[in-house]
Structures are given as C-alpha cells and as structure tokens.
C-alpha cells in the first residue's frame, strides 16, 4: 500500500520521470563508450567528480544544484585530461592512470567532505547523498535540470547517429571523409561527463558507471544492429532508473543507486540467458539443431547408397 501511495505523489512522478530519462541517456552514452572500449573510464570520471562537488559547495556556502554540477563537471574533465596526459606522456598504461585518478581524486573528495561535515556540523547540504545517490531528496529544480540535460544528451546521440556510427566503426576512414576526430572525441567527452554529473545525484559516484555499462552490454545480446543496440540500451536504462527508484522508495533512507543497479543487472541476466543474439539459451538450441543435422544423412547420400546396393 505504501508503494501505491508514493506513486500517486506528483513529486515522485517527476522524480521517476527524470530518473527514467537519466537511464535512457546513460544507456545511449554507454553504447558509445562500449565501442570506444572505454567502459570503465566512466567509473574513473564519476569518482573524479567528487572533489569538484565538495569544493563548489565550500565556495558557495550552500547547496545549489547548478553550481555543484558545474563543479562536478570541471573536476571530472580535469580527471579525464590527467588520465590522457599520463597515458600519452609516460609509460604508465591507461588502466593504471584510471585507477590513480579514480582513487586519488575520490580520496581528495572525501578529505574535503570530512572537513565540511565536521565544521558545519551534521549532514551539510546532503553532500553525502552524492556517494550512493538519493533521488528522493531531489527538489523540483533538480528534477527540471536533470530532464533538460538528459534531453540534450539524447538529442546529440540521435541527431548525429550516423556520424557516431562511422566514428566508432572506422575512425581512419571517417577522417578521410573530413570528419574531425578531435571534434568528435571532445563531443563524446562532453556528453559523457554531462551524463555522469547529472546522474550522480540519483545513482551516486560509485555506481554511476553501472548505469553506463550494464544496459548497453544487455542490449548487445538482442541485436546485431548498432541502431537497435542504442535503442534497447536506452529502454533497459530507462526502466532500470524508474523501477529502481520506486523500489528504493519503499524503505526509509534506502539509497537509490544500488537498487537501480540491481534492476539493471536483472535485465542483464535475462538478456544473457534469453537474448536472441549469442544468448545462452539460443546458442544451446542452435547447437542442438546442428548436432541433429549432422546425424541425419543427406538425401543424396542415401539414394546413392541404395543405387549401389541394387547393383
């Protein structure tokens, strides 16, 4: 009964709608990240956003979502630049660079957060919610901002769809056609960071990567078309966001992030088993078909055998 009651609240409806849009945007960007082979970069960048959030709060003195998001974005972008710089300018490999930025930046964030929490006394401005996400504490302006950003991301992916496809599949040829690879990379980083910072509120820094990775991997099991993969990924992401938020609302103080992730993981498990393309069940059935065919002698072979025997 409590769940139904919650669904009727218009505020919850708005929150639900925004986490659904967030899930859709994350699902779509996740596809781009997957084919760029940079799925875990989103994990590094999400963690890197934390110090930016805390510093913005410290500078402003109170919680303003817009300012915090800008701070998060700057921090994440700085992290991205550092990862790039270290990878290019030294022998340290990309995975190590990601691990370093992830943990050191997060450490900085926690250092500052601890100071903030201790000086102001108590849970100041709900900054702790950025760690695991708490969609329920979002106010109307937060929701509006999230929807606006999500729509921008969705638009950028949809309008430039064939450009993304070309860029991900064959960047050399794309360059030959006159595409600016640097421009596309910048745009990609921009929408990635945008998605991450908008989602941190609902899912938290630690689990944001999950929303970017899991829906797109799930979609892969259903289709061999890039377009359908992006669409399905958006659907899985959107549903995970919405359902996860509802479930987390059932308990007091339950963080939204982990529940969204578990819903997404459920979709993944189902896709893994039942997916049309390379799903476990389908592969087993196909194998059985092939085995049956191999046992059945061909008609030609049989008639030739009969002719021989008849002499």
């Amino acid at each position: 009964m409590k769940a139904l009651h919650i669904l009727l609240l218009s505020n919850t409806q708005w929150v639900l709608f925004s986490t659904m849009l967030l899930g859709m945007a994350a699902g779509m960007i996740g596809c781009l990240a997957y084919w760029k082979r940079q799925s875990l970069m989103s994990d590094a960048l999400s963690h890197a956003a934390l110090p930016g959030i805390v510093i913005s709060f410290m500078l402003l003195g109170y919680k303003n979502m817009f300012v915090l998001i800008i701070g998060a974005a700057i921090s994440a972008l700085l992290g991205a630049c550092l990862i790039q710089w270290v990878t290019v300018a030294s022998r340290v490999k990309e995975d190590s660079a990601m691990g370093i930025v992830l943990s050191v930046f997060f450490g900085m964030g926690i250092m500052l957060l601890t100071i903030v929490n201790r000086t102001a006394g108590g849970n100041q401005g709900g900054l702790d919610n950025f760690i695991f996400g708490q969609a329920a504490t979002m106010v109307r302006s937060d929701v509006d901002m999230m929807m606006f950003l999500a729509l921008i991301v969705i638009l950028i992916v949809t309008i430039l769809f064939k450009e993304w496809k070309l860029f991900l599949f064959d960047p050399s040829f794309a360059q030959g056609l006159g595409m600016s690879l640097r421009g596309m990379n910048l745009l990609y980083t921009f929408v990635l960071v945008l998605t991450i910072v908008m989602g941190i509120q609902a899912v938290g820094v630690i689990l944001m990567a999950a929303l970017l990775i899991i829906p797109s991997v799930s979609a892969r099991y259903w289709t061999q078309s890039f377009g359908w993969m992006v669409a399905l990924s958006a659907i899985f992401g959107g549903l995970s966001g919405a359902i996860g938020t509802v479930v987390s609302a059932l308990g007091t103080g339950w963080p939204t992030g982990p529940f969204i992730v578990i819903v997404a993981a459920t979709f993944f498990a189902v896709s893994l088993i039942f997916g049309k393309h390379k799903g476990w069940l389908v592969q087993k059935l196909e194998l059985r078909e092939k085995q049956k065919e191999a046992k059945r002698p061909s008609q030609q072979h049989l008639s030739r055998k009969i002719l021989k025997e008849e002499g």
Partner: peptide
Amino acid sequence: QQDASIGVVFTTLFAIGV
C-alpha cells in the same frame, strides 16, 4: 569486452552488498 565485463560484475556485486 574486458572492461565492460569488469564493470558489470563489480558494480552488481557491490550494489547487492550495499
């Protein structure tokens, strides 16, 4: 893909733990 595999597994298990 390797990265994505890691991402799926650890976030799910961690989420369950939380």
